[in-house]
Design a protein around this nucleic acid. Structure first.
Lengths: 235, 235
DNA sequence: TCAAAAGTGTTGCTATTACACCCATGG
DNA sequence: CCATGGGTGTAATAGCAACACTTTTGA
């Protein structure tokens, strides 16, 4: 046994060991726009430049856990929807040390998140399309994350992750328009979504966005939130 | 500058450094079945057990490059279609050391690959559905890789990567049936594929699979191989 | 001659699109 | 009273699924 262990050390030992980071593309939705939460990098190199929220994977955690931990620390939020985007591993993607990054995207409800914690790190929300240039390969990571989000949104309603508990169909449509960066026919969108049978209409109207007022809806139940649907929009 | 560098070392230094491996799910197609190329692991732990083709990422290469290098060394093949599946990072996914794996899937043309090199490593092809149990989390990796392949095949014709240069529509359909693990209507499949306008019919028939003989087809051009198409089959 | 695969045609159905059009109401 | 978004209806179309039917030829 001891001998085996020694051989192992020898075998593994020949290979480099590298830092493994996670970087989170944090999406939020407000004022009809898809937003991105960006942080000023807190240490060199590129200190002060805008970057994704990141951190290093520790000994006893998976990358998923690391991403959740960092998100919790930095936004105060738990139980966030997250999905892995990809690993980024160009040898010189960071300028000083070899760091491989496992990228995630997260969907945040802006009505729930803790602004104080966020602002304490100097973070800020930027409209996806008017975001500043990011460090290293973070622009590329954002592009890939958006593609993943679009794919998910095409097969599942992403309302609950990004909107308040109750919402109008117009709000949901505008969210989809923001995600897919194109307009959708209001009537057709409404019919398609309602035909899925995932939403319940409430006896309550939102009157802030139109004179007539629009009914609020909410998800039937948890299963409804995860149901696979046919494509909502054609790509 | 020196000082900055020192701080860096301190900052990065607190964090663990881990081995980063790549694992390749190698798909091939033969006799109407989707196959998987598996290797007997060459070192402890779990030496001798079936596993995916893997190796460690070296100092000056990206994970993509590492995967291509390992594939070349082990199958003799260059210019293989590969796509990243995901990073696997559970702390105890390997029993002895902390190793994060970036998984890829590769599509191999079995008519082209070098059997000698493959067999020299003791590797063998297994039907996807009758594969042996694999080490660590490799079973999970295979599942995810298949899901990715299915997704790609739904939006692009994967003929050229897995079939010989020329092929019949029946061969292509059987490939799709193997990938999606269900039967497809021959007439409808033919019409759908031909309507894409990606294939050219040759004045040559394959007579090995039917009495009547079936025309060979090939791709119009390189662009045709990459064209995004509507879903070939409904899922 | 006939089984079996190659290939074509037809039909019904469903989803999608592009609209027209009515409703309700705050300013 | 009218502009604006909310909400419903409809007609044209495209795509899909199911399946009938015809062609070819080696065993």
């Amino acid at each position: 046994m001891e001998e085996i262990k020694k051989n192992l050390q020898e075998l593994y030992g020949q290979h480099p060991r590298v830092y493994v980071a996670v970087d989170c593309v944090i999406f939020g939705y407000m004022d009809g726009e898809l937003k991105l939460l960006l942080y000023p990098r807190s240490f060199e190199p590129a200190k002060g430049n805008w970057s994704l929220l990141g951190g290093f994977v520790q000994e006893n955690e998976s990358a998923d856990q690391a991403a959740a931990r960092i998100l919790k620390r930095t936004t105060g939020l738990d139980q966030i929807y997250m999905e892995q985007v990809a690993a980024f591993s160009e040898p010189n993607r960071e300028t000083t040390a070899r760091v491989i990054s496992i990228a995630y995207y997260a969907l945040i409800r802006l009505d729930k998140h803790d602004e104080e914690i966020v602002s304490q790190y100097g973070a800020d929300w930027f409209p996806l399309e008017k975001r500043p240039d990011l460090i290293f390969d973070h622009n590329e990571i954002v592009e890939k994350a958006l593609a993943k989000l679009q794919q998910k949104a095409g097969y599942q309603l992403v309302g609950p992750e990004l909107l308040p508990e109750i919402f109008t169909l117009t709000q949901l449509r505008r969210l989809y328009e923001a995600i897919f960066q194109r307009t959708l026919d209001p009537g057709n969108f409404r019919k398609k979504v309602l035909s899925l049978d995932l939403l319940t209409r409430l006896n309550k109207k939102d009157s802030t966005e139109s004179k007539k007022g629009a009914f609020y809806y909410r998800y039937n139940n948890q299963e409804a939130r995860e149901k696979e649907i046919g494509r909502i929009i054609k790509i």
